[in-house]
Computed example of a mutant assay.
Amino acid sequence: MNNVLNNIVLSIIFGLIGILLLVFGYWFFDKVLTKVDFNHELREKNIAVAIVIAGFMISIGIIIAAVVF
């Protein structure tokens, strides 16, 4: 029972770390690497920017999953 609890706690911790890294990666990509204000473009319903952000988040998520697990 104790081993199961440890696995649940570790899964929650790694999940939170993954989410934080994904948010940081999005911020870094938005503010540092590009000159485009993605939040403004999303408010203007720019579908191309939404697709780029979705692809970026999926790729960063795959990288984080490979590193964390």
Rank of each mutant, 00 (worst) to 15 (best):
M1K: 05
N2P: 14
N2I: 11
N3A: 13
V4P: 10
V4G: 15
L5H: 12
L5Q: 13
N6A: 14
N7L: 15
N7Q: 10
N7A: 12
V9E: 03
L10K: 09
S11G: 09
I12M: 06
I12Y: 01
I12H: 01
I12L: 10
F14Q: 08
F14K: 15
F14N: 12
G15Q: 02
G15L: 01
G15F: 00
L16G: 11
I17G: 15
I17A: 12
G18F: 03
L20Q: 10
L21W: 05
L21Y: 04
L22Q: 02
V23Q: 11
V23S: 13
F24V: 10
F24A: 14
G25W: 02
G25A: 03
Y26L: 02
Y26D: 04
W27D: 07
F28Q: 04
F29Q: 07
F29M: 12
K31F: 13
V32Y: 10
L33D: 00
L33P: 00
T34W: 15
T34P: 00
T34L: 05
T34D: 04
K35H: 15
K35G: 08
V36K: 12
V36D: 14
V36I: 10
V36M: 12
F38W: 05
F38S: 08
F38N: 12
H40D: 08
H40C: 11
E41F: 00
E41D: 03
E41I: 00
E41A: 01
R43F: 14
R43N: 11
R43A: 13
E44K: 12
E44Q: 15
K45C: 14
I47H: 03
A48H: 09
V49W: 01
A50T: 00
A50Q: 00
I51H: 06
V52G: 12
I53T: 11
I53S: 05
I53A: 06
I53F: 02
A54T: 09
G55W: 03
G55F: 04
F56T: 06
M57A: 05
M57E: 08
I58W: 10
I58H: 03
I60S: 03
G61W: 05
I62V: 08
I62L: 04
I63R: 06
I63W: 00
I64L: 04
I64C: 04
I64N: 06
I64R: 07
A66H: 13
V67E: 11
V67R: 11
V68L: 01
V68P: 00
V68D: 00
